[in-house]
Nucleic acid binder design. Structure first.
Length: 221
DNA sequence: TGCCAGGCCGGGT
DNA sequence: ACCCGGCATGGC
């Protein structure tokens, strides 16, 4: 069913964006130099603090492994030991390999070719790779491929459900749709918006309890 | 000292 | 279609 764009929601989302941007300024995302590094970071940061990911990427770089060919050829045990600081290192080493296996198996190792390919949708292609779920796929699409896909995450759901804009039990696609349906399809806007949400979310509330007394909800926006 | 961090998968109901 | 346990390090 096609949802009509609601002007009031659109204005509210804009106001939140403006408020966060005024408070924090441009975030300069994604924190990574190359498209491949962005993809690696997107996988490594799954349920993990970014500071731990930074160290893991440094370790990979010092071994010359932050490029598709080198990572594809690397021993999975070596990979795991290098990304140890990011946690779940055995799982994530496999996920990195799953990605490069697809990249070389289907696109000759070329990100350009992967991003150009559109057999049934690039998002579906990414989601079919074991270890790439909706948030990781959208992060790759937005920050590496430059496509206008809004990235949702735990912060987004927490903040915007507390503000009554999505249901507390909304799933990933539902939260994403709030933004996709009510904002212009603009990769630069989506880029900055998600980054600002993460920045804000980190200070938003230390507790996950909806009735947390220390929650900054009252002072937010 | 426990709780939390920019999820996702696989097996069970 | 949900629900849950597992995966693991480092910071506060």
């Amino acid at each position: 069913m096609l949802k009509r764009k609601r002007p009031d929601i659109a204005r509210t989302l804009r106001a939140y964006y403006d408020e966060m941007f005024a408070a924090h300024g441009p975030q300069g995302w994604w924190p990574g130099r190359t498209r491949f590094e962005i993809i690696v970071g997107a996988i490594l940061t799954q349920n993990t603090a970014w500071t731990n990911v930074e160290r893991a990427i440094r370790e990979l770089k010092s071994a010359g492994l932050v490029n598709a060919a080198a990572m594809h050829g690397a021993d999975i045990g070596v990979l795991a030991s290098r990304i140890r600081s990011a946690g779940y290192f055995n799982v994530k080493a496999r996920r990195l390999k799953n990605f490069t296996t697809h990249l070389f198996g289907e696109h000759g190792g070329s990100l350009d070719r992967l991003f150009r390919s559109d057999n049934g949708g690039l998002r579906q292609t990414l989601l079919a790779i074991n270890g790439i779920g909706p948030e990781t796929a959208d992060s790759i699409l937005l920050y590496a491929a430059g496509r206008p896909e809004f990235v949702s995450d735990a912060y987004t759901k927490r903040i915007f459900s507390r503000h009554g804009l999505v249901a507390g039990d909304a799933d990933y696609e539902e939260v994403k749709a709030l933004f996709m349906d009510n904002l212009p399809s603009d990769a630069r806007l989506f880029n900055e918006y998600h980054a600002l949400i993460v920045k804000t979310g980190k200070d938003y509330c230390k507790s996950r309890k909806p009735d947390c007394a220390n929650c900054a909800l009252k002072g937010f926006l």
